[in-house]
Amino acid sequence: MPLSTTTIKRPSYLDRIGYQAGLLAGICAMVSVLILIGYQATHERIAQAFEQDQLNMLAQVLPAHLYNNDLLADARNITALTDAYGDGRLFSAKMDHQATGFAFTLTQEGYSGQIRMIMGLDPEGRILGVRVISHSETPGLGDKIEIAKDPWILSFNGHSLANTPTSDWAVQKDGGQFEAFTGATITPRAVVQAVFDGLNVYARHQHEWLPAPSPPDHESPEQEASNTQTMKQPQAPVPASDRTQRSKETHANGNQ
């Protein structure tokens, strides 16, 4: 490295504080303009890519032959979903204005951080599909909940509260009917719990969601109360007794 070039006489203005402040300000202004240009050039494509992501996600849990509406345009924000699971978007699949399915996201605490899932249901409350969107479970153990790693997540397909008794909504280790894969119990337990909770939310609110052009979402105060109750559930799977009680209440609500 040449030692000479840097030390040889520097113009004196370089040492003036005013020049230095101006230089910093100038660089910052220039950089802001650059970033603005970059944003203008990319934000449309980024929005498109994001939309495509959502559609790809939905396509996995809502078979394409079920609907002919624009899923993204028909999406609604539902407080019951927001309260319980954070995202709150309800995607309704319709075939010629007839409701044929629903999809929404779920969040549950896994072994190391939150597991985000999306599930699709048909109007009778049967599961069309469940997929994991994001998680931070242990690679090689807990990540078998991803469809790319293991077909385990498909074992939910076709199940509903009606055809699967409440006591079966657990991993086999806990006396339920869902297999837990080797080396991980907490992760599948969390997924089963989330799916069960999702079915319950649907059972409780299907009468509001089902009519195709449904009025804006409003709930009676008591329902709101029962919602928050389920929302405050402990992160770990609820003991079976607690769960039975909760699902009784669910069925009562669902049959309204």
Binding site: C28, V31, G38, R45, A49
Partner: peptide, 21 residues
Amino acid sequence: PVFIVLIAAIVTLVEMWLNAW
């Protein structure tokens, strides 16, 4: 500070570009 601002701007641009394309 000048170099950090420059590097941060370049990284932001690269990030936006990657996200889009």
